[in-house]
Design a protein around this nucleic acid. Structure first.
Lengths: 108, 108
DNA sequence: AATATGCGCAATTATTCGGTTGCGCAAATA
DNA sequence: TATTTGCGCAACCGAATAATTGCGCATATT
């Protein structure tokens, strides 16, 4: 059973769940109203998200509120980090091109 | 056939391929030497990465060099963006706590 | 020209995934 | 106390995945 964050956010429904929960903690039933699939289907997604610590539960009577855990999402950000400099560098290069164009224009 | 970036980076082998190619464009054979699985298995991953534009091919004789496309990876970063403020806010709160502690210490 | 190499494609297979349905249990409500 | 409600768990099913194997086709190399 692979249960890492990348596999967790691979599913569009789970990404939607995360976006919703990030705004406000919700119960499985409340979440399910936002989707076409059944409560159980949503609950399965919730289980996966919980197992990889992207969300956390907090019992309140018979209701369970699921909260978003930003710290875990950081891990994705950290993986992206190795590539970030590449598109930023490309941006710098574009800046350079624009500067060169300006210079040429001035030289005319 | 779902072919979005999130599904593409869900596989650990594909993530490794991306990390390697980001450093230097490579051929399928060169890539395959880094993994236990066969060249064909690696080629399949390459195909998926190509289909969702995370990498691009450049033919050179009978060899095909695959390059990393940072622009596409940006899309993941943009999705993460909606959560970033949450862990940054939490960081701010920690700062606040530290400031409060300092103040209390001074008051003593 | 004959052989070797690099590669993509197609068929096959075992495993995983996302979904539904049915169940049982505890908490709320009548 | 009887019923309803919120929820997790287990069994099952079809579709998708990841990997292997075998093939054919170009481009190099001999």
């Amino acid at each position: 059973m692979r249960r890492d964050i990348f596999q967790a956010i691979a599913d569009p429904t789970r990404r939607a769940i995360l976006s919703l929960i990030a705004l406000q903690a919700m119960t499985p039933n409340a979440l399910a109203t936002h989707f076409d699939s059944s409560r159980q289907a949503v609950s399965k997604h919730i289980k996966i998200l919980t197992e990889c610590k992207l969300i956390e539960q907090k019992q309140d009577g018979r209701e369970i509120y699921y909260h978003f855990n930003p710290e875990k999402m950081k891990e994705v950000d950290q993986w992206i980090e190795q590539f970030r400099k590449m598109w930023e560098r490309r941006f710098d290069q574009l800046d350079q091109v624009l500067l060169d164009m300006k210079r040429k224009k001035k030289d005319k």
